[in-house]
Design a protein around this nucleic acid. Sequence first.
DNA 1: CTGGTAATTGTTATCGATTCCAATAAAATA
DNA 2: TATTTTATTGGAATCGATAACAATTACCAG
Lengths: 354, 354
Amino acid sequence: MVSMLEKSKKSNFKKATISEIAKLAGVSRTTVSRVLSGGYFVSKNTKDRILKIIKEKEYKPSIMAQSLRTNRTRTIGLVLADIENPFYSRVAKGVIDAAETKKYNVILCNSNNDIELEERDIKTLMGRGVDGLLLTTVALKMKTIEYLLDRGFPFILIDCKLDTPGVNYVVNDDYFGAKLATEYLIELGHKKIFFLGDRKLLSLRERLRGFKDTLVDHKIESSNTFVPQKFINMYGIYDIDKIIEYIINREEKITAVFAGNDYLAIKSIKVINDNGLKVPEDISVIGYDNIEISSMVKVPLTTIRQPKYLLGKLAAEQLFEILENRSNKEIKRIILRPELVIRQSCKRIGNYKS
Amino acid sequence: MVSMLEKSKKSNFKKATISEIAKLAGVSRTTVSRVLSGGYFVSKNTKDRILKIIKEKEYKPSIMAQSLRTNRTRTIGLVLADIENPFYSRVAKGVIDAAETKKYNVILCNSNNDIELEERDIKTLMGRGVDGLLLTTVALKMKTIEYLLDRGFPFILIDCKLDTPGVNYVVNDDYFGAKLATEYLIELGHKKIFFLGDRKLLSLRERLRGFKDTLVDHKIESSNTFVPQKFINMYGIYDIDKIIEYIINREEKITAVFAGNDYLAIKSIKVINDNGLKVPEDISVIGYDNIEISSMVKVPLTTIRQPKYLLGKLAAEQLFEILENRSNKEIKRIILRPELVIRQSCKRIGNYKS
DNA sequence: CTGGTAATTGTTATCGATTCCAATAAAATA
DNA sequence: TATTTTATTGGAATCGATAACAATTACCAG
C-alpha cells in the first residue's frame, strides 16, 4: 500500500535520541549529555566512542527538549517596522549575519508600521520562547516597554532612542542628523521647509525635534510645515500622494521637503513629478538613511547617511552579550554618528546670511 | 541587595504552568489541557472556571513543552537568497502575512546567494524543528533536495522550477517571461543582446533558456553573450562593475542587456552611466521582476512583472495546507504568468522584419 | 594494605505540556 | 431497582533532553 510505503520511508529517518546513543555506547544518557556539552569529566576513551556513534547516526540533540529543560532557545526575535523599506532590510541583514556567527536563529515579524501589531508580535515572540528581542520599533507603547522591563526580558531597541531607565538601544544620532539636514537646506536659502514624517514614530520624533530646533536657531518660523493629522490614520500609514498634493496646492508654497526617510523621499519625488513639478528645480528634497538606491534614482538623493548594517549587527551583538552573561546588567546604549551626503535633489535658491 | 531585588522582580512574573492552573481550578492537568485544545468532553461549568483562571493568571502554554510532546512547532523556515534584493523582501512579506493569519511563525535565514550557506541553513532550520521549509533558492544541490525528499520533510520552492517528482513549487513562468523580454528587444531591432545573470541560479537558468530559444527562433546568433565564467566566483556572486566594463570594452559591441533581475539591472545602469554611456541611448537594458523602485530610478526600467507578494503568499499557504493535512500528498505546483512592463530603458534601434 | 582523594559514570527528578486508558458519576434504559 | 450508556475527570506514561547528587572505580600516599 502506498501509505505504508510512505510511512516506512519516513520512519527510516526518525532521528536518533540521546537514549539510543547512550544504549549503543553502553553508557547512561548523562554521559552522552556531558559529551554533548564539551565532554568534561568524561574519559577520553568513552568520549571518543560516543562521538563516533553520534557521527555515525547523524545524531542531533532535539532543540525542543533542550529548550524545555534549559529554558534557552538560542533564538531571538526581530520585529521590523517594514521589511520592504530597504533601510530595515539592511538592518535585518546585519542582525542575521551576527546571529549566524553566534549560532543564534532569528524569528522575524513585520509590524507593518502598525502599533497594535507590533505589540502582538512582541507577545507572540515572547510566547514562542525567544531568548531576547530586537525591536526596530514604530512607536512602542510605554505599556509594552514596561511589560518587557517588568519581567526582565532582554531586549534592545534599534533606531529608536528611548531614555527610560533600563532600556538599551543602538541608534544613530537622529537629532544631530536632522540638524545636519536642516542646516544644509537653510544654507541653500530655504526657509519654507516641510517635514514629511509621522510624528508617532519615535525615531522621526527625534528628527523632528532636530529640525524644529534648527529652525528656531535660525529664527525661521515653522508653523504649518508638518503633516496634518488628517493624513495620518490610526495605523500611522499615510497616503503620500494626498500629502504631496496638499503641499503643492496650498497657498503657502514650500521650497523644500525634509523627508523622514529615503524610502519616503524617493516616493515623494515620484509623486511630485507626477504632479508636474520637478526636483530640485521646483522643490528640493532631502532624505534620511542613505539606502542603496538613493544614488540610483532619477534625481540622486541628498540625504543623511546612517550605518544601517552596523546598527543591526551591533544591536544583535549587544543582545547576545546580555544573554550569555545575564549578570551583566550595565546599560548598553550606542549612538552612531550620521553624515550628510550631498547629491542632486537639493537646489540653492538664495544666499543664506547669518 | 540589588541582586535579590532583581531576582524577586523577575520571579514575580515567572509564568504559570498548566499544573498551577490545574491546582487552582481543582482539576487535573489533563482537564486543563482539554480546555486548551477546544474544551470538548469538559462540562461547561469546569470549562468556564478554568478559562477564567487562565485569563486571570495570563496563562500561556509553553510552546516548547507542546512542541516536544506533539512534535509540531507551528514555525516554518524561510530561506531567502538575498534579503536586500527588494524582490525577496516582497516575497518575504507575502510569506509573513500568510503566516500571521495562520498563526505560524517564520524563522528567517539569508543564504546570501551562497550555495553552501543555503545548505547549512536548511539543516539548521530542520534541526530547529521547523514544521516545513520555504526556499527562495539559489541553486539547490540535488543532494539537498534528495535529503529533504528522503525524510519526507515538507518544503516548497519559491521562484525556482524544479520538475523532480515530489517537489512542489510556486513560480512565475520564467521561460515565458524571458521570451517576452527577448521578443521585445528583438522587435526594437536589437540583435546583440547580452544576458546578465548567473547560470547557476535555477530561476535564471529558465530565463536564459527562454532567452536562447527566442534568439534561435529569430535566427539570431548568440555566442559570446553570456557572463564568462571568470566573473562568477565560487559563491556565485559577481562583480557587476567588472562585467559591465568587460562588455563595454570588448570589440564586439552589444546594443542591449537582458538583466536577470531588476536589482541587477538597476545596478548595471548605474555602472553603465559611470562608464560614460547612456541608457537607453547607447545601451538598452531590460530587467525582470518589476520591483517597486523600477519605476522611480533614473531611467524608469522596462521589465517583466511577476507577482512577488503572491508568490510568497501562495507558497506559504500551500505549505500550511500540507502541514495541516499531511495525508494529502498531491503535488502542488503553481505557475503564475508574467507580463511585460514597458518604460524607458529600451530604445528602438531599427525595424525588425520577420 | 588501607584510607582518602580524584576521576568517571549512573540514578533519578524535572522541564511543561499531551494522550492513552482507566475510573467515576450521572443519566438513561430495562 | 439493576444495568447500561454516556458524560466527565483523573492517573500515569511520555516527549528528549539536563543537572543535582550519589555511587563507583582508580590512583596515590602513608
